[in-house]
């Protein structure tokens, strides 16, 4: 009974999982870029850059991810801007998680001891050199554990895309539930799949963290 329902349900669920993984992977790229851009922006000396970064972070952290998704998908077309569901999902979810990531970047940069920047200044390093060779490399390891949590948050938030017509894992679960009525099996399987992916995400971030520590001779 369990095996037969497994062979019946799994193919479609795995297809949905593919979409979920695509959005997660692309979203991670968007989120990482946004997090570093805004994180550095908010630590900048220019007031305008700081204000812009702060506005982005507050806007995306302050409103609900689902509202953002709906706004881009349903309200933007009114301005003549039609975005397909897939890129809209990737950009919105990426920017949403990126806003949280920006605070992580800011916090980690602020946690690098001030003496490091002073020593760099004493060695006549430019501001750019100080950032790239002194402050960022030391801040990166501290960013990894919160980044791991955010990656899992991103994976979880991809479930929202099923509400803007994308056929991800959650969407396929709904389809299967309606057609097979095996509600418990379907949702049980889906939860296990999400849990497994989240676990693997967490492990890979931990692996990355160890690599970073080793490359800096701290292992």
């Amino acid at each position: 009974m369990l095996l037969s329902s497994l062979t019946e349900l799994l193919p479609l669920l795995l297809k949905g999982l593919g979409v979920t993984l695509q959005i997660t992977a692309a979203g991670l790229v968007v989120a990482t870029c946004a997090a570093f851009t805004a994180g550095l922006g908010i630590s900048s000396n220019h007031r305008a850059v700081r204000a812009l970064a702060r506005a982005y972070i507050d806007l995306f952290r302050g409103t609900s991810a689902l509202v953002q998704l709906f706004w881009v998908y349903y309200a933007l077309p009114i301005f003549g801007l039609h975005i397909e569901a897939m890129p809209a999902a990737i950009v919105v979810l990426g920017l949403n998680i990126g806003a949280y990531g920006a605070e992580v970047v800011r916090g980690a940069l602020a946690a690098v001891p001030q003496e490091q920047a002073e020593a760099a200044a004493a060695l006549n390093l430019t501001e750019r050199q100080t950032l790239w060779h002194i402050r960022l490399p030391q801040a990166l390891p501290a960013m990894m554990p919160p980044f791991g949590n955010l990656a899992i948050e991103l994976l979880k938030s991809t479930a929202l895309v099923s509400l803007i017509t994308l056929a991800d894992l959650t969407f396929q679960a709904q389809v299967l539930r309606a057609s097979t009525l095996q509600t418990a099996e379907v949702f049980g399987l889906v939860l296990v799949l999400y849990f497994t992916v989240a676990w693997m995400l967490g492990q890979s971030v931990r692996w990355l963290e160890r690599c970073l520590a080793r490359s800096q001779g701290r292992a």
């Binding site: 938030s157 539930r177 418990a184 949702f187 849990f195």
Partner: peptide, 22 residues
């Protein structure tokens, strides 16, 4: 707690919504 924390709220919502009545 680990399982609840790392799976999407939306899926959990659906699970509660469809499974509780049954």
């Amino acid at each position: 707690m680990e399982a609840v924390r790392t799976t999407p709220l939306l899926v959990q919502l659906f699970a509660w919504f469809y499974l509780l009545p049954s």
